[in-house]
Design a protein around this nucleic acid. Structure first.
Length: 911
RNA sequence: GGGUGCGUAGCUCAGCGGGAGAGCACUGCCUUCACACGGCAGGGGUCACAGGUUCAAUCCCUGUCGCACCCA
């Protein structure tokens, strides 16, 4: 006997262990012989991470797809694993060292530090995998991979994959080393990618500085204008005003730019200014970058510290003077007075000195965009001139774009294509080197003259160097590691064994669907496309399903600082994994963020209980599965109807999953189970199950068990635990189960609909609902049993009444149903089908209430009829609307008119 | 500034050319033999606003306002 309520906490671990024991997650588990494959690679969570609600959504969706396809008996692989998360992981371990007051990273040295990170990974990293298991994720954990491999050793396959890709790209001319401006993180002292930079609006200032012209040059500057904007008054100036939001960078200025068409400065191009505080003689150049309408129209150029200035400098052959150390302190290229100052200190000092020398013209307040570290949002990122390794992303992007254009890869929802193309078409070179220790070390060795030898092994590099120098030389390996996304870009094939030609690689590549959030479309999705096409000559997946962001109920992004984070583990704890998963699925409408509220979770927890209790009811009524039961042989309309309704629900769930409309799939199942099976079928079954007709009872018992089995199957991808538990419980009676539910086959239910049974049951439900409704409106006490009188019933209606009397009287709480020639006086009346029905209320009926009730319905019908008449009277409508639309309007009008007639008669009888 | 998306019942959201829907919340009744994490019945919406296209617009187009996100 099932307990009264389902207790997820007591069941989930046991069920999960049962799946593991049956090896049900293993690649190909339960697959049909010769089945096609279905593969998903997990977006590898950071090894530092813990399960947040976005992971929960992401993995719920993957698990739904995986479980569904596994039940289709495909050869399914859900490839799990984790990402080494270079920066994040290194930071955590460094912080830990600091907290424990142990020697820092640099004191410790590279080898020891990296060893320490591995130790951290073993001890406290990767908790997220166990959290995914709590959610019910059915990935093949025996195949778990880590982007750095087992131990990061050079001969580890995951490492070799990365090395080989780097070397190959280098040989193909797609990787190069160059000194360029990068986004520099002065705290971590590493380059980061532009995707890791977030521009934040800050209240700043625009400082206007007077740079003195060199060599005694002066010019006439317009200071007053007439109505047409023509200058009428000039003053003689020996300086040029430039404006900047970052005055400290003036220490690195190597030019001043004015627009080539700017009349005010035409004579100054080719002349020089003397850089204040520094004394450097720097040229005035003409460049369209200078906008005459902004500020004074002249801009200072600092090629080493601004992306735009870098370009201007390159165009005009300006010097690059780097004034910062890797920690963004002023270096020795600046005058001694500023050396060693932090950049913000330097700003104050520079401003004070400029003011003292009367260089500062004026200051205005201005909102400016300042680049910040995307993760902390605290550290200001510096454009910084360094040597880095770059990938020619624009070359790799072309095949990926072509593939999406040709439909070989599609985005769901499709609108993400626009975002994808917008980015890919303007893709910048990808800086792949990071000045960190935790990560894949770049396979480049430098000779004594700085020549780089890019090879898969040190031995190969030595050989190459020897060939080059004609003697053995000492090589120095590049200190840097690769961007984390470089290795995760290989994930769809590296996890399957590449560069080896493994059976898994041949079988499961390309994968099928990638399920991910739009926030990593550039970081990860685009890179996998590029790498997959470049190294496997085939798209890594055919579909990219982008799910939305989970927000709180007010639509705010969840964040720890706002304190509005909903912890999925807490939800699982409190409401169960099934309710948590079902909520996420039910809210996952395409292309729309989901606002999660606890009461939705509660509602779906109730749904789990509802299902549980329906199963309990079946158990109590000995509804057991019957061997060889064929729903086609059902005699009772009740059973024929519910089987058809189950088939319809199954079709809706199936197409919902197939089309990635998880909310529709979940809601279809919900509506059917609660609104149809529990609310109507179970209630209808009660008189049959308690009745004397043995055959009818047996048929209903078998049908109920059959339908429950199908419900369990259609809900399994969404609610794996409770359905598996009930599968086991219901398996205790009747024929032995062939397998756990997880490995059961997704049903096929064709040709099971019976329109006649549907019509009959629809009529029954309408009759019962209407009786209930009239009773409530007439204030009949819920417990009171009334007789029901029917007038003007057809023979079909009479037949149905005879057949279903016990159902109707029970569910509508009636005493008896009697056909009569006319409506008894003092009755409440209503119309269902062709018949008029009456509930004799005798003396207790309030004639006025009844009249009002009926008049209200007449009004409604009149409104409907008038509306239709207006349409039908419109010649244009009759001429242009499709025939079936017109026909539908006519038949609706007819029905309304006939109903109105009957109600009008009922009113007449009251007078 | 550019782009994308969204404004539908008190709340969270479906629907997206021909009859306004769900869940939660709310109201009334029900200690009915699966379930009060329940049952039954109900109230509640000029589908943001203004134009346009169409026989017909919540749905398509344009604009306005508001909100969110992305990019600069």
């Amino acid at each position: 006997m099932l307990e009264k309520t389902y207790e997820p906490g007591a069941v989930e671990d046991r069920i999960y262990d049962g799946w593991l024991a049956a090896d049900a997650f293993a690649a190909g588990a339960g697959a049909r012989l010769g089945a096609e494959t279905f593969t998903i690679v997990i977006p590898p969570p950071n090894v530092t991470g813990s399960l947040h609600i976005g992971h929960a959504l992401n993995n719920t969706i993957q698990d739904i797809l995986i479980r569904y396809n596994r039940m289709l008996k495909k050869d399914v692989l859900w490839q799990p694993g984790m990402d080494h998360a270079g920066i994040a992981t290194q930071m955590i371990v460094e912080r830990q060292l600091a907290e424990r007051q142990e020697p820092g990273r640099r004191q410790m040295g590279r080898e020891k530090f990296v060893e320490r990170v591995w130790q951290w990974k073993d001890e406290s990293g990767g908790a997220i995998i166990n959290q995914l298991k709590r959610l019910g994720a059915s990935a093949d954990f025996s195949r778990e991979r880590f982007t750095m491999g087992e131990r990061g050793e050079p001969d580890d396959q995951m490492v070799r994959a990365v090395t080989k890709v780097f070397v190959e790209l280098f040989r193909r001319g797609l990787i190069y080393r160059a000194k360029r401006l990068v986004n520099w993180h002065p705290g971590l002292e590493t380059a980061i990618s532009d995707l890791e930079v977030e521009n934040l609006e800050i209240k700043g200032h625009m400082w206007h500085l007077r740079y003195p012209l060199a060599d005694g040059v002066t010019y006439e500057f317009p200071v007053a204008f007439d109505e047409d904007g023509k200058p009428v008054e000039y003053e003689t100036r020996d300086y040029i005003v430039v404006a900047t939001t970052r005055p400290e960078t003036m220490l690195g200025d190597t030019g001043v730019a004015v627009h080539p068409d700017d009349e005010r400065y035409k004579g100054l191009v080719g002349k020089f200014v003397t850089l204040p505080l520094v004394g450097r003689r720097i040229p005035i150049v003409a460049d369209a970058y200078a906008d005459p309408s902004l500020g004074s129209g002249a801009v200072k150029i600092t090629p080493a510290h601004d992306f735009n200035d870098f370009e201007v400098g390159a165009r005009n052959d300006l010097q690059q003077v780097n004034i910062f150390t890797t920690r963004a302190e002023i270096n020795d290229n600046a005058p001694e007075a500023y050396r060693g100052l932090d950049r913000f200190e330097a700003r104050k000092r520079v401003l004070a000195d400029l003011e003292a020398q009367d260089i500062l013209d004026h200051v205005e307040d201005k909102k400016i965009m300042v680049p910040h570290d995307e993760k902390s949002k605290l550290v200001v990122i510096e454009p910084f001139l360094t040597d880095q390794w770059w990938v020619k992303a624009d070359v790799l992007a072309k095949p990926a774009m072509a593939s999406v254009r040709a439909g070989r890869m599609k985005f769901v929802p499709q609108q993400y294509e626009n975002l994808f193309f917008a980015w890919m078409e303007n893709i910048k070179p990808w800086c792949v080197s990071r000045q960190l220790w935790w990560g894949h070390r770049i396979p480049a060795w430098y000779g004594p003259d700085g020549e780089a030898f890019v090879e898969e092994t040190e031995v190969a590099a030595m050989a190459a160097a020897e060939a080059r120098y004609r003697k053995p030389v000492e090589l120095r390996r590049d200190e840097d590691v690769l961007d984390t996304w470089f290795s995760s870009g290989l994930w769809p094939f590296s996890t399957l064994g590449w560069p080896e030609d493994t059976p898994e690689l041949r079988r499961y590549y390309p994968t099928d669907v990638l399920v991910t959030g739009f926030d990593i479309i550039f970081f990860w999705v685009a890179r996998m496309m590029m790498m997959g096409l470049e190294f496997m000559d085939e798209e890594p997946f055919h579909t990219v399903y982008m799910h939305a962001l989970v927000r709180d109920e007010k639509g705010q992004k969840m964040s720890k600082t706002k304190g509005n984070v909903i912890d999925p583990l807490q939800l699982i704890e409190e409401y169960g994994a099934d309710a948590t998963r079902f909520t996420l699925a039910a809210m996952a409408a395409q292309g729309r963020d989901l606002r999660l509220s606890i009461n939705r979770v509660e509602g779906y927890r109730n749904f789990v209980t509802k299902l549980w209790n329906a199963a309990r009811f079946l158990e109590m009524n000995e509804c057991r599965r019957v061997a060889g039961y064929d729903p086609r042989t059902n005699k009772l309309p009740l059973n024929r109807w519910i089987v058809g309704a189950t088939a319809r629900a199954l079709a809706a769930v199936t197409s919902g999953i197939e089309e990635f409309r998880f909310n529709e799939a979940a809601n279809s199942a919900y509506d059917f189970v609660w609104g149809t099976f529990c609310d109507w079928y179970v209630e209808f079954s009660k008189p049959v199950l308690n009745g004397a007709d043995e055959a009818a009872r047996a048929e209903t018992q078998a049908t109920a068990a059959y339908v429950l089995d199908h419900i369990l199957k259609m809900l399994h991808p969404f609610m794996p635990f409770v359905t598996e538990e009930l599968w086991g419980e219901t398996g205790k009676a009747g024929p032995v189960r062939e397998s756990q539910l997880i490995l059961a086959e997704w049903p096929q239910m064709q040709g099971l609909e019976d329109p006649q049974a549907d019509g009959e049951l629809t009529w029954l439900m309408e009759l019962i609902s209407t009786v209930r409704s009239v009773k409530t409106e007439m204030n009949v006490p819920a417990g009171a049993k009334l007789p029901l009188v029917v007038v003007g019933a057809s023979t079909e209606t009479m037949r149905r009444l005879v057949e279903s009397t016990s159902l109707i009287t029970r569910l509508a709480r009636l005493e008896a149903i009697t056909p009569m020639a006319s409506v008894p006086p003092g009755s409440a009346q209503f119309v269902v089908g062709e018949a008029t029905w009456a509930l004799p209320l005798g003396g207790v009926i309030d004639i006025d209430v009844e009249k009002t009730r009926l008049a209200k319905e007449i009004d409604k019908l009149d409104g409907e009829i008038a509306g239709i008449d207006r349409k039908l009277a419109n010649e244009q409508f009759v001429a242009k609307a499709p025939e079936e639309v017109i026909e539908e309007q006519r038949s609706r009008r007819e029905a309304a008119v006939s109903r109105r007639g009957k109600i009008a008669e009922a009113i007449a009888r009251l007078n």
